Computed example of a mutant assay.
Amino acid sequence: MVICAITLYPVRWFAVRLGLLAPMSGHSTHTRVTPLGGGIGIWMGIVGTFAIGTLAVAFARHAPEWQARMPAAMVPLLNGVWSKAGQLWAVLGAGTVLAILGVTDDRRGVNEWVRLAVEFAVAAFVVYYLDFGLTAYIGVAWLTNLLSVIWIVGLINSFNMLDNMDGLSGGVAAIIAATMAAVMLITPDPGTARPQFFVAALLLVVLGSLLGFLWHNRPPAKIFMGDAGSYLVGFLVAISMLMATYAGDGEPRPHAVLAPLCVMAVPLYDMITVLWIRVREGRSLFVGDRSHFSHRLVDLGLSRTQAVLTIYLVTATCGLAAIVLTQVTVIQAVMVLGIVACMLLLVVILESTGWRKDDQ
């Protein structure tokens, strides 16, 4: 949080020289030119924190005097953390590629097909080379790998499309990261019977960096996340969900694998409905507009702040449902999923009021 918050001050000051300015057009609701370099600060917050942590672990493993000052429960974990360092930096390297793609897109614009090709290539790298993928109790390797790649690309673009109002994409991502970190800490790994500290740490560092960004992105925003930030955050959230285990070490809970879908309900709802509206109206799928969930709430009479807070509330509700989903039986899980479905149906009913007004 601190690294990101501090880094974004010089990014804001030098945004003009860096060529990172948001135009007053497309799906933006701002009436003045605003810097687009929030992703640089988010990247620095995440990578900088893990760089410091990696160096600290490397040093502490061979320094008994430092281990003596550490909490006793942490010392046995040092070697395990170090064994994951290579995997962690491979993931961060893949995320850095997407962040560079995003900065390039923010500065000069990148052809949408080139952008998608890079996203699919990075997703394929982490699925096929790093071996991160869904299990989902399907048992068909090629299908789960394909779904994993689609999941990563889908989440990257869902956060990108959600970045259309002050504090919206960053705040929603922070709620999702916090929720999934809680799931990781209360769902033990079946192999070790310990909380999933590695995935939780990744999510909590992402959360901290997002909080540092939100200090600058709160209304009226001084800087936007930009493509660099949304690509990176979407990618890391997607990867963390693939790295996680949802079964626990007790009673089998196959329904727990639906927790990521549950917590991602709002961004996915926004992306699917926006794409549907664009297809229905015969417009390009890749050109930004004001047909997003947040814009539709404003059209219903909410202020921008009220629209963002409403989306926060729905996201938090779905997030709490995801936490419960991983701890309950199948019958109880059906009820939890029913609550989420009712929440989304309520949103659709409220939005239908605006649709009828438009038709009249």
Results as ranks from 00 to 15, higher is better:
residue 348 V to W: 09
residue 186 I to D: 10
residue 83 S to G: 12
residue 228 A to V: 11
residue 33 V to D: 03
residue 175 I to Q: 07
residue 252 P to R: 01
residue 58 A to K: 11
residue 252 P to M: 00
residue 264 M to Q: 13
residue 315 T to V: 08
residue 308 V to K: 00
residue 242 L to C: 11
residue 216 H to W: 15
residue 107 R to V: 03
residue 344 L to V: 09
residue 232 L to N: 03
residue 69 R to H: 14
residue 340 V to G: 03
residue 124 A to F: 06
residue 170 G to W: 10
residue 190 P to D: 01
residue 107 R to L: 10
residue 263 V to A: 12
residue 347 V to A: 02
residue 299 D to T: 12
residue 360 Q to S: 11
residue 285 L to I: 07
residue 336 V to R: 10
residue 36 L to K: 12
residue 249 D to I: 04
residue 167 G to V: 03
residue 34 T to G: 02
residue 76 P to E: 10
residue 177 A to D: 09
residue 215 W to S: 08
residue 217 N to E: 00
residue 47 V to L: 13
residue 167 G to K: 00
residue 256 A to H: 01
residue 135 T to H: 09
residue 355 W to R: 08
residue 131 D to E: 04
residue 206 V to E: 08
residue 256 A to E: 00
residue 13 W to C: 04
residue 7 T to N: 02
residue 185 L to H: 14
residue 246 Y to H: 10
residue 24 M to D: 06
residue 84 K to I: 00
residue 76 P to Q: 04
residue 199 V to I: 14
residue 146 L to S: 10
residue 167 G to C: 05
residue 114 V to R: 14
residue 160 N to P: 00
residue 192 T to W: 14
residue 62 H to M: 00
residue 170 G to S: 15
residue 9 Y to L: 15
residue 5 A to F: 11
residue 72 A to V: 04
residue 123 A to I: 00
residue 260 P to Q: 09
residue 235 F to A: 00
residue 332 Q to W: 05
residue 22 A to I: 00
residue 182 A to W: 14
residue 91 V to F: 08
residue 9 Y to W: 14
residue 95 G to M: 05
residue 336 V to M: 13
residue 210 L to M: 00
residue 352 S to C: 04
residue 19 G to V: 03
residue 283 R to A: 06
residue 322 A to V: 08
residue 187 T to I: 05
residue 147 L to P: 07
residue 277 I to N: 05
residue 160 N to Q: 03
residue 79 N to P: 10
residue 319 G to A: 03
residue 59 F to T: 15
residue 92 L to K: 02
residue 106 D to L: 00
residue 119 E to G: 02
residue 188 P to H: 11
residue 237 V to L: 15
residue 345 L to V: 15
residue 63 A to V: 09
residue 332 Q to N: 07
residue 59 F to S: 09
residue 216 H to I: 08
residue 294 S to R: 07
residue 123 A to E: 08
residue 350 L to V: 15
residue 307 A to W: 06
residue 195 P to V: 15
residue 94 A to E: 09
residue 113 W to T: 07
residue 22 A to V: 02
residue 355 W to H: 14
residue 165 M to P: 01
residue 294 S to C: 13
residue 225 M to P: 11
residue 188 P to Q: 14
residue 351 E to T: 07
residue 311 I to W: 04
